[in-house]
Amino acid sequence: MLDRIEFLLSEAFVSLGRNKWMTFAAVTTCAMALLLLGGLGFAYMKIDQFAQSLPSKFEISVFFRDKVPADDAKRVVAETLKMQGVDSVRFLPKDVQWEVLKKEQPELTQGIPNPLPDSMRIRLKDLAAAPNVAKELAKKPEIGGENVKYLAKEQELLTTALGAVRLLGLALGGLMLITSGVLIYNAIRLTVVARRREHRIMHLVGANQATIALPLLLEGFVQGLLGGLIAFFAFWGSFAVVRALMISTLQVGGTEVFPITSSLFGFVAAGGVYGLICSLLAVRGKTLKGAIG
């Protein structure tokens, strides 16, 4: 068994050594593709996390129309709580608000009737739900469109930023991934051509398909694996640089910890699997059914 593994490994590494430049091109392109996909994926995840934390900072303020009965206001509060994306609703009766204001600004409030409407403050679980919640509330006769206030522009900006990062990651990463796939495929095809004599001998003496195909699959796997490893180190370096920049310029981000284990495993596994898939595509047909005559 060990003998067989040694033979298969030696066959795979002979090929890697023979096609040095093609291997180099395939490995580096694969690394760049994984770095782009992984790096931008990580950036997307971080922005998304930030966006998730924003609803606690952003509140939708809703003001009831004059003379809305207390029961109707309570019903609206109950309905709002059931809306998708809503985390909590705080009802603020106008009398309570007026009492607070009178204590804070006694001179300003002296001798005038309470001008404040009943209101509520809505916190969201999902910032993306804000437009829908606002739209639904604006339809209610107890409230009216002009009485719903929230940070629509900020929310829109964040959504656009997330979309752009996602699109950029998918477009650039996808393109690089296809390029690296073609390069790995070509490297394996070159190996098939370079090793046609050996493959012919193998067919001639009755080597089974696994003996012929495994070194080729192993070669693609190793190329992907190396690409993943390089991508991991590049990503680690980029993370350290970005973190240092954020600390020095924005004084934020110092608590971020680089996820070494999950990143290493993710990049290496993704690279290995991708290399294996590309080499599987390359090792078909004639390679395994080669002519011997």
Binding site: D3, R200, I201, L204, V205, G206, G293
Partner: peptide
């Protein structure tokens, strides 16, 4: 099977040509 063109591996010595074929059919 003996092909017309011998089918020898040029970068391997005589004994290596035979040994390689044996290794390809899982001989230790």
């Amino acid at each position: 099977i003996v092909p017309q063109d011998y089918g020898l591996l040029p970068n391997k010595k005589v004994w290596e040509n035979v040994a390689y074929a044996m290794r390809a059919v899982n001989r230790s």
